[in-house]
């Protein structure tokens, strides 16, 4: 087995899987092109992570990383959470295979994006990458998004330029 016991435990029994309906911070990293995609949902109350959930498309270590990250981040103040790095997550998992360190160890990046999203929303700032969909409840509204990389696409196109995915009639 290429993974240690801690990784396998988080892979087999991932903690905090799912979405948060009224999330006030969402962060997304990765792309199906490189094999992994991770979404982090935050419910922040009094500048503290009251709840955190994740969804991940990826290998065993990507799922374990997401799970461990949510455990580390849950209950932390925003200031504490901002200090969490990918390295911290890998260490908490007692190590990941070398070739997986870069491709699947993206959990902390997703968390940082989710915190940034929360802060931007609070400050009333529209995110610079506005065309990326950050609020999932709008994903099937008037605008079409690529189901694979979430970049906004024109209705009826059969190919996503951003992730090179064939779309057929899916959106």
């Amino acid at each position: 087995m290429m993974y240690n016991k801690v990784v396998m435990d988080h892979f087999r029994n991932p903690r905090n899987v799912g979405t948060i309906e009224d999330a006030n911070g969402v962060g997304e990293v990765g792309n199906p092109l490189c094999g992994d995609m991770m979404t982090i949902y935050l419910k922040i109350k009094d500048e503290r992570i009251d709840d955190i959930k994740f969804q991940t498309f990826g290998c065993g270590s990507a799922i374990a990383v997401s799970s461990m990250l949510t455990e580390i981040a849950k209950g932390k103040s925003l200031e504490e959470a901002k200090k969490i790095t990918n390295k911290d997550v890998a260490e908490a998992l007692e190590g990941l295979p070398k070739n997986k360190l870069h491709c699947s160890n993206l959990g902390a990046d997703a968390l940082q994006m989710a915190i940034k999203d929360y802060e931007d929303r609070k400050a009333g700032i529209q995110r610079p990458e506005l065309k990326r969909k950050d609020e999932h409840e709008h994903s099937h509204g008037d605008t079409c998004y690529c189901p694979y990389c979430d970049v906004e696409i024109e209705e009826g196109v059969t190919f996503c330029e951003a992730c090179q995915h064939d779309l057929k009639e899916e959106h």
Binding site: P32, G35, F57, C59, A62, Q164, H165
Partner: peptide
């Protein structure tokens, strides 16, 4: 790709027209 040492999508699967995500 995740299960191979190279972490690249299979050349065979891409050749028959699969997307990277579906090849995964």
């Amino acid at each position: 790709a995740c299960a191979t040492g190279s972490l690249r999508a299979s050349h065979v699967l891409l050749s028959i027209g699969l997307s990277h995500a579906d090849a995964q």
